[in-house]
Design a protein around this nucleic acid. Structure first.
Lengths: 125, 125
DNA sequence: CAGTATCCTTTACGATACTG
DNA sequence: CAGTATCGTAAAGGATACTG
């Protein structure tokens, strides 16, 4: 049963399942995982692929993703160092479920924008 | 092609596709849509089903969901008024793609919590 | 009942400078 | 190169009181 009761919590904390989801569907996390889909990438490559993310925020998000087990972090000794990030099986599992959602957003984007515009036109009267 | 390039933007704005996703995978939106899955609900029923959401935030989120076309809002004349919210086809489409993600989070939750704990143990040395 | 209105706090994020 | 450290801002959300 995937009812809403499995996601609600009385106290001020997110229930564990919501905490899992919020750790991965946020503004940056899914984008970072997507940047690793084809092959492992170095820190600077991820940053370049995403474009509009600051170093600080990327570091922060990568740490959280590593902590939860979505990516691995590998440091090669040398100077300057190279740090490679790669998807784990868990990260790939998530991506496989999330990508259909991206496809849907691409398909439906125009409809949603039209809905929004229509709603705003009505309210403007 | 569902590459990352379809989601990145050079300027400070979210690209349109990311804007769509951010409007629906946030902290409350998916939960609200889930509360409407079986049948339309009144405002107070949604609030009760979710539990930890304030009236202000629920109102705000419902408006945005209505604006984008995920839910309809129907006011019955009477006193006091009854307001019913219901899923649209668009809202249902989203839920159909999002629910597998919830199922996955339920399955994987324990693993992820263990990853987190293991990571924190390492860092504690 | 279904909201508004106000105020306040927290969290995420951006910008920038610095470092092994 | 891959971060850390600091500072500042803006948006989301919580608490509470009020209303047609």
């Amino acid at each position: 049963m995937l009812s809403i009761t499995s996601l609600t919590s009385a106290d001020g904390q997110l229930c564990p399942v919501r905490r899992v989801l919020s750790g991965v569907v946020g503004k940056w996390q899914s984008l970072i995982l997507l940047s690793l889909e084809d092959e492992p990438q170095r820190f600077s490559a991820i940053k370049r692929l995403i474009g509009d993310i600051t170093q600080r925020v990327l570091t922060e998000n990568l740490r959280d993703l590593e902590r939860d087990g979505y990516v691995t972090r590998t440091v090669s000794d040398g100077s300057p160092v190279e740090v490679h990030y790669a998807l784990t099986a868990l990260g790939r599992e998530f991506l496989d479920l999330f990508k259909p959602l991206i496809g849907w957003a691409v398909q439906r984007r125009a409809d949603i924008e039209e809905n929004r515009a229509a709603y705003d036109r009505k309210r403007a009267d």
